[in-house]
Design a protein around this nucleic acid. Sequence first.
DNA 1: TCTATAGTTCGATATAATTCGAACAATAGC
DNA 2: GCTATTGTTCGAATTATATCGAACTATAGA
Lengths: 100, 100
Amino acid sequence: MREYRHPQITEVQLESVLYALSDPIRLSIVRQLAREGEASCAALENGRPKSSVSHHFRVLREAGIIKTRNDGTSRINGLRDNELAEVFPGLLPAILAVRS
Amino acid sequence: MREYRHPQITEVQLESVLYALSDPIRLSIVRQLAREGEASCAALENGRPKSSVSHHFRVLREAGIIKTRNDGTSRINGLRDNELAEVFPGLLPAILAVRS
DNA sequence: TCTATAGTTCGATATAATTCGAACAATAGC
DNA sequence: GCTATTGTTCGAATTATATCGAACTATAGA
């Protein structure tokens, strides 16, 4: 599959990040990535339809929160936490510190 | 007018806060409140229809981000920043630190 | 009491997001 | 090449949000 387009971290919008993280499913995906590091989409599906999960990954990716790379038939997702810390210092840690 | 219902700070949902702040108009209201302290709704209208602005204040209030009290014919709004810091430490400061 | 001021609420419309099945695409392994 | 595995994309239905005019409520002040 083709590569994804990830926004430059400098063009990431605060509003888009907040919106992306305001969805419980997406927030739980981000929490899981924070706990476990990288993960495939399948590892984060939790029984939901693949198309729905794929949609949420897209929102997170386009908001600049995760990066996705190809590995065989899998996509490996990871947080862009270091980059986010450059433009929104403290934001992701503050969110992840909240009891799930 | 009757009093508003404000959620207890302990029942405020992180997702609701993030959602409320993901709207540019609401975020700008919050930034303005952070800069100037308390303000009436009218002071934050910026030429928008009153009914639209009222809607955004409601979203912010129900999310637990602002408190509103009556003062004559005006409502005075203020951030619940101290309370929010108890449940989501560092969140609001991280958001407000971002260049508008 | 009359009028102005400040917001809320209602209702209708328009726009956007979510959800998920079905079809499709890309890779790995036999 | 065939098949299984992983996801993506499309399309359609449902749901949620935003927007804003109009009617309404509540208070202040003359």
